[in-house]
Amino acid sequence: MVIELPADLSGDEVLRFIAKLRWWARVNLRRVIIVVASAKGGVGKSTIATELAYCLDAVLVDLDWDDGGASRALGWLHEQRHRSPLLDALDSGRTPRPIRGGASKPDLVPAGPTLEANQPSADRMCKALIQWAADWDRPVVVDTHPGGNAPADGAKAAAHLTVTPTTLGLKQMEALNGFAENHDGYNLMIAPNEIVYQVWADPHLERIAQIAKTYEIPVSSPIPEVKWLRSRKARTAVCSVRTMPASREELITAYAKVAHQSALRALQATEDAA
C-alpha cells in the first residue's frame, strides 16, 4: 500500500498527515534503512535525520561523534554517561535497546565521541545495522559523521536509500558533486536545505539540477531557511508539535514532504531488490 500526499497540505492537516505517515511507515517500512550522509558538515544533516526518523517512526542510529550531532540535540549527553550504547552493542554482538523517545522525539541509539577512536570496519557496521533493523522489525534512520569514515561507509552499504542534504554555496556544490560522483550506483536522493529564493541563490539551484541530471539522482522538495531553527533549544523533533504554529508551518510541511518522498523511494528500492 502506497501512502498518498494530500493535494492541499497545510495547517493542522500537515500534522494529521505526519501521524498517518508514522503509522504507515511502521507497517510498510519494517527493516528499511535510510541513511543521511554528506561530504560536508554544516548542511543540516543531523536535523534532517532527526525529523525523518520522527516522521517515519524509525529508530535513529547516530553515528556522528561530534557534539553538534542528533544525540545531544535530543538530550543525550555523553558526559553524563559511562558507556556508549552503540559501541557496547557492537562489542557484545547484541542488538541495542533504543532509548525511547515517546511522543516528542524518535527512539535513539547514540554512540558519543568515543566512536571516533573506536570506529568499526565498514563491513561490521553494515552487518550490524542490517541485523538491528531485522531484530527491531522497524524502519531505521542513520545519521552519519560528515566526510569519509568507516561507519558511514558501512551505513551507506546497508542503506536502501541515502539522503544527502546540501545548502547553497560554491563549496557545498563542489562537495555535492564529489559525493554524487563517488557514490555512483548508490540509491541517492539530494535534499536541498536552508533554501532561500534570492538572485544569489539561482546559480547554486541550477548547479543542483545539473548534478542531479548528470548522475540521475532525484531531488527532494526543498527545505526552507528559517532563522529560529539555529537557536532552537527544545530537545524534541520540530515535527512533534500537537498544534501547528504559523511560524513553523512552512518548515514542518517541508520535512513531511521530504519524509514522504524518502519513504516511497526506499520502499521502491526494497521492491526492486525482491
Rank of each mutant, 00 (worst) to 15 (best):
P192Y: 01
L176T: 04
L264S: 08
S231P: 01
R235L: 12
A269T: 15
V196A: 12
V61T: 04
G75P: 07
K105D: 06
T214A: 10
D107W: 09
P6I: 03
I48G: 03
E51A: 11
K257Q: 13
D137L: 10
P192C: 05
T236Y: 06
R230M: 10
R235M: 15
K213A: 14
I223A: 01
A191Y: 00
A256K: 07
E181I: 09
A37S: 15
Y54M: 00
P203W: 02
L74H: 03
V238R: 11
A19W: 02
V196G: 11
A117P: 00
Q268E: 15
S92W: 01
L77N: 12
L56H: 03
G41K: 00
G41T: 00
V238E: 14
H260T: 04
A111H: 07
A212R: 01
A274Q: 12
H78D: 11
A274V: 12
V35W: 03
W200G: 00
L87W: 05
I3A: 09
A150W: 02
R94I: 08
K227M: 09
L15V: 13
E4Y: 08
E271S: 12
G101D: 02
L161A: 08
A89L: 04
M189P: 11
L229S: 04
G69V: 10
P106E: 07
W76A: 05
H183W: 07
D153E: 14
S220P: 06
E250F: 08
A259V: 04
D66T: 14
Q119K: 15
L188M: 08
A133Y: 04
R235G: 04
E4C: 05
G148I: 12
H145E: 05
V36A: 12
P146A: 00
A237M: 03
S10N: 09
L90S: 06
D8H: 08
A254F: 13
A175S: 15
L63V: 02
P224H: 00
D135K: 07
D184C: 06
S46A: 13
A274M: 14
G69Q: 10
T144Y: 05
A159E: 08
E181C: 06
K227D: 02
E271M: 11
G42E: 02
A128G: 03
